[in-house]
């Protein structure tokens, strides 16, 4: 086997080091090496968004990033969303509006929704639907997710 690649990166504000094979994805490493299993694998081909994370402030699918690429970068995952016991407003509204059922899509939905609200604190329903088009859900029928995001947006604007 080839020598493993040494990678040093920041995950949820913490400096982390790991070794990886060149073909391993960021998703593989988060789940299997760093024990951050909140990020889910639905398809491994960029279609479902269950593996959504932030990479240097950009929303990406972790299954479409090679682990070796994150050297020196900033990764944010669902594990960094709640502040201790205190849930993020999106996490709360997903609970209140039943935006999560089986839960597989939920971490990705939350990461994507947070990225939207950081750019646009007052999105229309259509903007939310388009922004979340890369996140598939087979349980909720989407409507409850959209309601949850709009409720969180409203709350975060202090409206």
């Amino acid at each position: 086997m080839a020598a493993k690649i040494q990678v040093s990166t920041t995950v949820n504000g913490e400096q982390r080091r790991f070794q990886c094979e060149p073909q391993q994805t960021l998703l593989d490493v988060l789940r299997d090496e760093l024990a951050l299993t909140g990020t889910k694998e639905g398809c491994a081909t960029g279609d479902c968004g269950a593996c959504s994370v932030m990479l240097d402030g950009r929303l990406v699918d972790a299954c479409l990033v090679l682990a070796a690429e994150v050297q020196g970068k900033k990764v944010e995952t669902i594990e960094g969303m709640a502040q201790g016991e205190e849930l993020h407003p999106l996490q709360r509204t997903f609970l209140e509006h039943n935006g999560s059922q089986c839960g597989i899509c939920t971490p990705g939905m939350l990461m994507a929704a947070r990225a939207l609200l950081e750019r646009n604190p007052d999105p229309s329903e259509t903007e939310v639907r388009y922004w979340l088009a890369g996140n598939l859900c087979r349980c909720t029928g989407y409507d409850k997710i959209i309601r949850s995001v709009l409720a969180a947006a409203k709350e975060m604007r202090g409206a």
């Binding site: 960029g46 968004g49 959504s52 990479l55 929303l59 990406v60 699918d61 990225a115 890369g134 996140n135």
Partner: peptide, 9 residues
């Protein structure tokens, strides 16, 4: 070109 996630890359 794909989703927001895909366009991010």
């Amino acid at each position: 070109i794909g989703s927001i996630q895909v366009k991010g890359r």
